[in-house]
Simulated scan of single mutants.
Amino acid sequence: LVWVSCPWRGAAFRVVRAGVSVPGKRGELLLPLSRAIAKAGQTFPPVAVLALAVPATGFGAAPTLIALFLYGLLPIFENTVSGLRQVSPSVLDAADGMGMDAIQRLLRVELPLALPLILEGLKVATVINIGTATIGSTVAAKGLGEVIIAGLISDNTAFILQGGLIVGLMAVTRHEALGLIESASTQRIGLRPA
Rank of each mutant, 00 (worst) to 15 (best):
L122I: 14
P32M: 09
G163V: 07
G179F: 01
S5P: 04
V147H: 03
D93I: 02
Q86I: 11
P46A: 05
T157M: 14
N79F: 09
M100P: 01
V4D: 02
F159N: 13
A61V: 15
V20D: 05
L111R: 04
V47Q: 05
L65D: 10
E120H: 11
E78W: 04
G97E: 06
R174C: 12
S185R: 09
A171S: 07
V139E: 00
A125W: 08
L73C: 11
R174M: 13
L107F: 11
T186N: 09
L152T: 09
D155M: 10
D155V: 05
H175K: 02
A141Y: 06
L191W: 05
A141H: 03
L165W: 12
E176D: 08
A194V: 07
F59V: 05
D93P: 00
L161P: 00
P7A: 15
L29H: 04
G168R: 01
L169E: 01
A194M: 05
I118T: 04
A158E: 08
I130D: 13
S34M: 14
V22C: 08
A40P: 08
I66E: 06
A38M: 07
L70P: 13
V127I: 12
Q86H: 15
G99I: 07
L70T: 14
F159H: 12
L119M: 13
Q104C: 05
L30Q: 06
F159E: 08
A140L: 14
L74I: 13
R174T: 04
F69W: 06
V124W: 01
L180I: 10
T157Q: 14
L180E: 12
N79W: 02
R14T: 15
G151I: 11
I37V: 15
R17H: 10
A56D: 01
L107H: 12
R192P: 04
P7I: 09
E120R: 12
L165V: 11
A114L: 13
G168M: 01
T57A: 12
T126P: 09
V172T: 08
A133M: 05
A53I: 05
I153N: 10
I76M: 04
E120L: 14
G121E: 10
A11L: 10
F159D: 13
L31Y: 14
I76K: 01
S21I: 00
P32K: 08
L115V: 11
A94K: 07
G190A: 06
R108N: 06
T186P: 05
Q187R: 15
I160H: 07
G131L: 03
L180N: 03
V20M: 12
I76H: 02
A177P: 00
M98H: 07
A48T: 10
G168N: 06
I66H: 01
S90M: 12
R17D: 13
V22Y: 03
L119N: 00
L169D: 00
P45N: 03
V2S: 08
P63Y: 04
N156I: 07
V172C: 00
V87F: 07
R26L: 15
T126G: 10
T80A: 07
S185A: 15
